[in-house]
Amino acid sequence: MATVEYKGKTFEVDEDGFLQKFEDWTLEWVDYVKDSEGIKELTPEHNKVIEFLQDYYKKNGIAPMVRILSKVTGFKLKHIYELFPSGPGKGACKMAGLPKPTGCV
């Protein structure tokens, strides 16, 4: 299993770069992932999405459907892609420390 070291913290990640353990999530993780997900500057809007994803995951044990994310945050899907260029599944969930959403072939 690959590990990542960043600012004194160690993270275990899978091959797509998702955290292995949700409990490992810290603010340093967000900072670390930011660049590879094509995000220049973190805004309150990013945090709103991340916070909602984490809340939902803690309550339900899975990531929410895109439609629910859109509804609760009030961000249109297009705007979510502007915030997280690699999309809500890959970019936003990764930053929020959620496990990789299951296969969507």
Partner: peptide, 30 residues
């Protein structure tokens, strides 16, 4: 099972696939 990869701006179009014997078959690890 699964794998999430993609290109910026799109959420679909690419399907991530990884082999669970990457050392035996490095050519298809990804």
């Amino acid at each position: 099972h699964g794998g999430i990869v993609g290109v910026f701006g799109y959420g679909g179009g690419v399907i991530g696939r990884y082999c669970d014997q990457p050392e035996m078959f490095p050519g298809v690890a990804h």
